[in-house]
Design a protein around this nucleic acid. Structure first.
Lengths: 223, 223
DNA sequence: AAAAATTTGGGTATAAATACCCAGTTCTCA
DNA sequence: TGAGAACTGGGTATTTATACCCAAATTTTT
């Protein structure tokens, strides 16, 4: 356990922060702004959740700034893995979207704090200090989400991993294509498209195409 | 005209860049990374398109880095205004989404280049130099969009400005609510919701709810 | 080779959205 | 105060999506 481990003074003197975000410029910006503060030191940068997980053990961050909207491995899945593999590390999630359901999912999967990406560096620092000192960071969005935490019938988030074909379907219907058009494009029967859509909705636990499109964007499925 | 104006050497020595983006951290990151290059100088930062427009005349940027997905005034509307008011300034648009229709709209409204936000600072610099030297910046995404420029029946983008009520409707249907639920929530008849949805689709020129949700996200309408 | 998952296709039924048409009331701004 | 926009409500019909049932062929994994 890291808490029992002897650490050199320079390591203990500041909060060790790891950043995972697929936007290089945002990542670098965050990094340089944080490093202007002496109490914080950025020890690791990753392009996505999978990369991050490979580095955590070696870099020993105290806090992880995690983008919720990454491709390859999304924020929720990464959070769940972090909780399992490195429960002592605090996870502060940043998202471009203020989505109550997503926030609740993150909390349930072990996130310690949440911030919108449209925020100031001061708020990020506040969040970092809070999770270090109190174990969690509560702001208005978090509170509202917590209040409704039992109202949202949330499925296990990482249970249903979408297949290649399903993601293909999602991309097309995000481009305003209807089932018949998707069937034509993919040379399959419209009934097959129906089935795929049904499976997709069940897997990600949404009610209709609106939910599918939102999910797609938040998980960086489109391109 | 600025090109006829005498400028002090220090002003002429580097490319003057203005940045408009609602994400402070991204903006600061971009700014500090660009300022590491001597050939480029960031002279202005804005939170949205409207703020930017107020500063352009005074700050005299050569190139504007414009986020496509801003609230208040979106990238397309800002681009159109820049073309009208400051045709000599080059506009390089950055977007979180690779959307062919959006790229075409931007080009038609006067953008000189396009980049995904998930890119490197080297690519941004490449874009800046290109628009300065050639007048435009072409990459793979732009080319593909240009190739289809006539296939896309694009309506005047800034023509239909959504009303408060319409945006309210959009927010609710982005939360997977169906017409009847929206009607209940807003204490109006379901026929009124129908009418709003119809008007929305016509204004933003999309085929169905999928297009509405995409539009909403790309224009930062949700919160 | 066996098991599991993916992809494919179908029947049937209802629920919901879309596409046109219509118009009165209210509100805002010039 | 007069014009235009916004918000409201309705008729009618068609198109699309959703829901829940079924299962065979193929691919991947174990």
């Amino acid at each position: 356990m890291r808490k029992d481990q002897t650490r050199t003074p320079d390591r203990r003197s500041s909060i060790r922060v790891a950043i995972a975000d697929n936007q290089t410029i945002f990542r670098k910006g965050m990094s340089s702004l944080l490093n202007e503060t002496e109490t914080v030191k950025v020890v690791s940068e990753s392009n996505n959740g999978r990369e991050l997980l490979l580095k955590v053990k070696k870099e020993e961050p105290d806090v992880i700034l995690l983008d919720a909207n990454m491709p390859v491995m999304c924020g929720i899945e990464t959070t769940a893995n972090l909780k399992k593999l490195h429960p002592e590390v605090k996870v502060l999630v940043l998202s471009a979207f203020n989505d109550r359901k997503q926030i609740i999912r993150l909390i349930k999967n072990g996130a310690h704090g949440f911030l919108l990406k449209d925020t100031s560096i001061e708020n990020v620092l506040e969040g970092i200090y809070a999770v270090m000192n109190n174990g969690y960071y509560l702001n208005k969005m978090m509170s509202e989400a917590m209040f409704n935490v039992n109202k949202v019938p949330l499925s296990p988030s990482s249970k249903g991993i979408l297949s290649i074909r399903e993601i293909e379907i999602i991309k097309l219907l995000s481009q305003e294509m209807k089932n018949a058009e998707i069937a034509d494009k993919l040379f399959i029967n419209i009934r097959t498209v129906h089935r795929h859509r049904e499976n997709i909705r069940i897997k990600i636990n949404v009610k209709n195409v609106s939910g599918i499109v939102m999910y797609a964007i938040k998980n960086n499925l489109l391109d």
